[in-house]
Amino acid sequence: MAEAPLISFEKVWKTYGEGEARVHALAGVDMSIERGDFVAIMGPSGSGKSTSMNIVGCLDAPTKGRYGFLGIDAGRLDRTRRAILRNLHIGFVFQGYNLLPRTTAAENVELPLIYRGMASGERRKLAMQALGEVGLEGREHHTPAELSGGQQQRVAIARAIVTRPTLLVADEPTGNLDTARSHEIMELMTRLNADYGLTIVMVTHEPDIAAYARRTIAFRDGQIASDTLRAEAA
C-alpha cells in the first residue's frame, strides 16, 4: 500500500452566508496531494482556489467534508490546534510579502521561531541560515523598506522555511513582481522543492508561473475543472 497522501480533501464543502445569499465556495471537492509534490492551483476569481488554499494552509476549516493533513483530521481542530499545526508544519508566502514593517529581515525571519519559544541565540542562527538559503546574506539588518520587492519576497520565503516545514503555501507569490524577479523567485521555490522535498501548494493565475509546478489543478465554480501533470514529469 502506498504512503498516505500529505493532503487529502474528501467531499469538502465551504459555504458562506445563509439562505438566499448562500454561496458555495467549494462544492464537494476531492483531491489529494503527495508529500514532495509541487502543485499550482489556478482558476478565475471566485472559483474556490483561495478558499481551498486557506483550508490547505489550516487557516480555515471546511463547512462539510474531511480535510486530512499529515493523516490528521485537520478540519476538526480548534483555532489553537490549527495555529500549532501551522507553526510546526506550514510556511506561508503571500502576494504582498506581508513582512512586519520597520522590523529587520532577520527579525521577520525569526518570528515563527519566537512562537515556538526558542531562545534568541538559536533563533538568530537559524534565521541567518534561512536568509543564506534564499541568497540574502548581508541583508539581515535591512528593514523591508530598504529592500526591493524581490528581496522582500525572499525574506518572506526565508521566514516560511526557517521552521523546516512540511508544506509551503504560496498565494500569488509573484503577483507583485516583474517578470525577471518572478522567475528568480520561482527558481528558488523549485530548488527548495527539489533539495528539501518541500511540498509546495501555490495559487497563481499566470500560466508561465504555474508551469514551474509539477502538477496544475484548475478550479471552476467550486469544483476541480482539470488536474494535469507537467509533460516531462508525467
Partner: peptide, 16 residues
Amino acid sequence: TREIGIRLAIGAHEKH
C-alpha cells in the same frame, strides 16, 4: 490588523 494576521498565520496563538 495585518500584522496580527501575519502573526496568527505563522503560528501565534490567541494567547500570544
